[in-house]
């Protein structure tokens, strides 16, 4: 089975410093999104049980050639990269268009796995948009997957419960972080990652033109400020009553 795992290159969130209430991205190394790593683990596990290969697919700037080694170390067999500086700031619609065009170029992909959202912007749109462009069915919020032939059974983790759905391949699946614990690659898996097959395309190779200007500008990414009520309580009973009064509990 040809499994495609789509992953996004993002700044390493743990290394971002904040200065004047703004994130500083200088010298912050790039990495792959955390939920994307769950998606990769799903793909690699399916390959290990059912055979086939896992291709990691990504679009971004030239740093991607180095960053993608993380995925190749963690079990992807090969990489297909679409590289252009403009892709680093492109919106979800452009990225989806690029990824879908790349999938069409690949030999018979049957399953595309995404993380539910990227580690930086978390728009959660790209998976659905790719499914729409390819006209494939899509399963979102997958918390477990079971594959029987070309029938995929997925549990979807919803707010008030779990939904079990079945879908015929080819399909797009977006997974949540709780679906697994990504494996830790060994020393040789890391060292050999750079030697795995990697195809690098430019948008023009897919017949696409990418707008040079960012379509989405981040004006602010601060958490909304909330005013503390600073209520002083003397007992648990008082606390319970206060929470009830605020409609936090006992609704």
């Amino acid at each position: 089975m040809n499994i495609v795992v789509a992953m996004k290159q993002i700044p390493d969130l743990q290394q971002i410093r904040i200065r004047n209430r703004k994130p500083v991205f200088d010298d912050v190394p790039m990495t792959l999104g955390a939920i994307d790593k769950n998606a990769l683990e799903v793909g690699v596990s399916i390959k290990e049980s059912q055979g086939g290969k896992v291709t990691v697919l990504s679009a971004g700037n030239e740093d991607l050639e180095d960053t993608i080694k993380e995925a190749l170390a963690a079990g992807a067999d090969e990489a297909l990269l679409v590289i252009d500086d403009a892709l680093a700031v492109a919106g979800s619609d452009v990225i989806a268009m690029v990824l879908a065009a790349a999938v069409k170029k690949m030999e018979a992909a049957e399953l595309i796995i995404f993380g539910e959202g990227s580690g930086d912007n978390y728009s959660g749109q790209v998976g659905s948009r790719v499914a729409a462009i390819l006209d494939w069915p899509q399963v979102g919020y997958a918390s477990s997957l079971e594959l029987n032939g070309n029938m995929l059974r997925a549990a979807r983790s919803l707010e008030d419960g779990e939904e079990i759905v079945e879908v015929t391949l080819p399909a797009v699946v977006t997974v949540i972080s709780g679906i697994n614990e990504p494996r830790i690659p060994s020393v040789t898996q890391i060292l050999k990652a750079g030697k795995k097959p990697k195809e690098v395309l430019e948008p023009e190779d897919l017949g696409l033109q990418i707008p040079a200007e960012a379509q989405v500008l981040s004006l602010s990414n601060l958490a909304p400020e909330s005013e503390r009520k600073q209520v002083v309580l003397k007992s648990v009973d008082e606390l319970v009553q206060a929470l009830k009064n605020e409609n936090v509990i006992g609704r």
Partner: peptide
Amino acid sequence: KEQSLIQQM
């Protein structure tokens, strides 16, 4: 990148 990944591992 490889050294960073080894350290991270």
